[in-house]
């Protein structure tokens, strides 16, 4: 056999870099998952509210729950920092070319938007209870502000939700050096996955039947779009030359192939889509299976991409 040898031996053995990069552990997928889920809630709850002009009683506290989930995600992000005492440095500057800098500032806008959209959709009973809290002057002012500007706040929440969901994908997608991350589809893919997981999370809350049916439909649309985006991503890699082939190999023949196709595509997307369509067409009562599978699939998508993508570098080119 006529074989030409090309063997490279490096004397570099830096921790977390060699032999394969592993700089980001569980913290980043957890943050990306929770960030996407919150983005989904920020898009869906206001959309439901704008359609009917009133908030579902069962989803009354959804924005507050979202703020709590986002805080868990940010805690995870903080744990990932190698110098957490310098976290304030994110907020002493704005770097327009850095998706992480954009994300840091978007996160700062997300909290007030969530709180105001929560206050604006509260029932009178809950408002009265809040009014009796200490420091109720400020609460009353915020309640009035949230009520007067309710429509504007809901639209702002949607816009910020789209920004948050897209940024979680762009964070990875703008890294050309990690071949599997370097695709423009990651932004819309993570946003769509966030909307799907957000819908799944809301389905677990005690919402009214008509709202649940609406969420099942929106979740199904998001899943179809997500499948299309995954297809576009893989097609883009497969036709993208040597670097693209390295990227696509991770989930088509490489180490992560069985996990990606079984956990993300089949269990996380195809099966819940089939269950959703059955519910819609046969008018079967919704079960917890579909939302739980969607949540698991959304987490698996981020876990696999973060772990596999780190290992795809230019060093694999010979």
């Amino acid at each position: 056999m006529d074989t030409t040898l090309i063997e490279t031996v490096s004397g570099r053995h830096n921790p977390m870099i060699d032999p394969h990069m592993h700089i980001w552990g569980w913290e980043i997928p957890v943050y990306l998952f929770l960030g996407g889920l919150v983005a989904g809630i920020m898009v869906l709850v206001p959309l439901l509210e704008l359609r009917t002009n009133e908030r579902s009683k069962g989803l009354q506290h959804a924005p507050l729950v979202a703020a709590g989930l986002l805080s868990l995600g940010m805690l995870s992000l903080l744990l990932d920092l190698e110098y957490p005492a310098h976290v304030y440095r994110f907020y002493t500057t704005f770097q327009p070319t850095s998706p992480m800098s954009w994300g840091s500032w978007v996160l700062m806008l997300v909290y007030p938007a969530l709180i105001l959209s929560w206050l604006g959709g509260l029932t009178q009973e809950t408002r009265d209870r809040l009014g009796r809290l200490p420091g109720s002057g400020l609460v009353q002012w915020a309640l009035e502000f949230a009520t007067i500007h309710r429509t504007g706040i809901l639209w702002l929440t949607i816009v910020l939700g789209v920004a948050l969901g897209t940024y979680t994908g762009l964070l990875l997608g703008t890294m050309e050096a990690r071949l599997q991350w370097h695709t423009a589809t990651l932004g819309p893919l993570f946003l769509t996955s966030g909307i799907s997981t957000g819908a799944a999370f809301l389905m677990l809350m005690p919402a009214e039947e008509d709202r649940l049916n609406r969420l099942v439909r929106w979740d199904s649309i998001a899943i179809v779009v997500e499948l299309g985006l995954i297809g576009a991503m893989l097609l883009g890699f497969a036709t993208g030359g040597t670097t693209g082939l390295i990227a696509v190999k991770t989930v088509m023949g490489g180490e992560w192939t069985p996990w990606f196709w079984s956990l993300v595509v089949v269990a996380g997307l195809a099966v819940p889509l089939a269950l959703n369509l059955t519910e819609i067409r046969q008018h079967v009562h919704m079960t917890l299976f579909s939302p739980l599978l969607v949540l698991g699939g959304g987490f698996a998508l981020r876990w696999i991409l973060v772990m596999a993508g780190q290992q795809t570098s230019f060093a694999l080119l010979q």
Partner: peptide
């Protein structure tokens, strides 16, 4: 100014 976020490490094509 460094927070140790490691974005620069991921972005470097030369590791």
């Amino acid at each position: 100014k460094c927070t140790g976020c490691k974005a620069c490490i991921a972005a470097c094509p030369y590791d």
